[in-house]
Every structure is written in C-alpha cells, then in structure tokens.
Design a protein around this nucleic acid. Structure first.
Lengths: 156, 156
DNA sequence: GTAATTCCTCAACCTGACTTTAGGTCAAGC
DNA sequence: GCTTGACCTAAAGTCAGGTTGAGGAATTAC
C-alpha cells in the first residue's frame, strides 16, 4: 500500500518541519525516526514522520533530552501512522512530565513571593534556601539542567 | 571593615553550596562572581557570594542560561553584600521571568489537553501544530532549548 | 620545620545536540 | 545526454557548561 510517490524526501521533510536536513539525519542516527531508503539509498519518509519530528521539537523545548524523547517514543510504532490510542498513551505521559515541570516552577515562585516583600533573600532564613538535598555532583559532562528545581543551601 | 577572617576560601564555598570547586572557578570566569584575592593569590569570598551561587544553581535548573543569569545579576553589587533594595529589584525581575516560563508551559498544556481526548495529534488540525513561527535555524552550536515553547508545524 | 592539604593557572577533555566540510552519487529538467 | 541541484557518508568542528590533569605555590596541622 506504500507507493514511492507517497513518500517524502529529506528535503521535503526539512521544509515542512522547519528543521535542518542535518538535524533530521542526526535524529535518525539517534533512533528517533527510521525512514526507508529508495533504490538510490536516499531516505524516504512517511507523512507521519513529520508529526514525529514536530513532537521532537516541542519536547525538546520543554526540556526533554533526546534520550528521553526516545523513551517516550518507545511505545509508538515506527513504520505505521500512530493510532489514536498510541497518541493518547503518549500524550498522557507527556502531560505528566509537563505538570511536574509547571508545579516545580510554581513552587519556586511561591517561595520567591514570600521573599520579594521582605527582601529576605538577603537574610538567613529565607524559604528559598531551606535545607534539604545535597546538590551532589554526578560525573563529568554538562549538567542536566532539568532535574527537580527544589534547591537548598544554608548560608551558615 | 572586611577582615580576612570574615572571608571564605573556595573550598569553604564549595562545601556550603554543594558546587564543585571547578564550577565556582568557571562561574568567576563567566563574570557571575568576583571574589577578591589574598596575598597568596587565593580567592576570598564574601558570605553573600554563597547566596549568589545558590541562586545560580536554582536559576540554571529553571532553564536560565549562564548569560541570562548574568543579565539578571547586572543590578546587584559585586563587591558588597546586597541590600534589601538590591534583592527586591532582583527578585522582581526574576519573578517576571518565572511567570513567563510558567505561562509558556501552561499554554502548551492547554493545547495538549485538547489533544489527549481526541487523539488529534494524529490529525491535521491539531492546535499544537498551529502555524505561527518558523523555527528557523540560527547558527551552529547546540540549540537553545529554552526559547519560547510555542511550536508550529503543518503537515500538509 | 616539614608534611599534608588546599589552592593556583593553563590546557585538554567531555557530553549533548547539532552544523560544516569534503568527496562523491542520484534524480529532474531541458 | 548532460547539467544542476538534491542527496549520500564520514569525519571534524562548534557551543555551553563544565571536569580533569599537570606542575607548582600557599596554608594549615603537627
């Protein structure tokens, strides 16, 4: 049922998604998409790959790493257009992550609000600096800046 | 008024903030802190530098880049402990940035919610894919994943 | 006073997420 | 049938945000 003419070249896909061709190749390398090849070894994409790629863009902006997106995609079929059920499972998971991020930010905002009025960021018992976790390092490489936001430091 | 005994070594500061010594040196290199030096050229920090560093950690976790944090810090004095007024200006600005981030995420959540029920991520007129900006590339290097979240792609 | 820590600088390395380049192939238009 | 543009791979480069290591000086602890 898949005629060649139904499929898109990498250039087409780049155009439709706004992504660079090199980025699309990179995502394939990372296993996020698996386009077929034509006789001449050129990539041929399904229309549904555009949705997949769009979702990658959005998820990244939300702070998901490529590897996390890969996990999220684990449930989705690669070679057929996702069904409604596929997307429901996917977006439900996604929504949970979103909620967590929003809650995290709101919690900090709440704590910050207590501080704006009193200038307590300069004082010693500010709620923002309540002691709890240890912020331990965890090896080389760039920091994952999307861990939980609940910081803690006591100045004395 | 600043006796040497009031000041902290880089090791002390590392201990109190949970940061690695190398990270603290890096932040200095980036202009986020400006410790003094003693006769032997060793860094000596103000107590208030601990607050500064703690804020850096929190802000990074919220997705602020070092350069953005640097901007936020522009109003704060480097060489003396911030006053209440300093912190008020600072936290007011910070709060505005926080608000913007939260709104961004909530907007996306709203759009996503419309999609979970109907499975419309697989359809063509999903609100998540409304057309608006162009997602244009902007040079080499890693993508800034904390730009506005409002994505857009149309599949056809 | 000397040994053990801690600190210094500078340069190289690392990861993630890509882009750029080089050298070559494929496909579409005329 | 040939030219032009799109495509291919592989390797190297880039940028942020750091860490690691070498070689040496300063501090602290005994």
């Amino acid at each position: 049922m898949l005629r060649a003419s139904d499929m898109l070249s990498i250039g087409d896909v780049a155009h439709r998604t706004g992504l660079a061709v090199s980025a699309i190749r990179y995502y394939e390398e990372q296993g996020l998409i698996q386009p077929e090849r034509n006789r001449g070894n050129q990539r041929r994409f399904l229309r549904s790959d555009i949705r997949r790629l769009s979702f990658i863009v959005i998820a990244q902006r939300l702070g998901f790493a490529i590897s996390e997106i890969s996990d999220l995609f684990a449930d989705l079929p690669n070679r057929r257009t996702p069904t409604r059920g596929d997307w429901q499972r996917f977006s439900t998971q996604f929504r949970a992550r979103l909620d967590a991020k929003i809650q995290d930010l709101e919690a900090l905002r709440g704590r910050l609000d207590g501080c704006i009025g009193c200038g307590c960021l300069s004082l010693e018992h500010c709620a923002i600096y309540n002691p709890q976790d240890d912020l331990g390092r965890q090896g080389p490489g760039p920091r994952n800046i999307h861990r939980s936001v609940s910081g803690s430091v006591s100045e004395r």
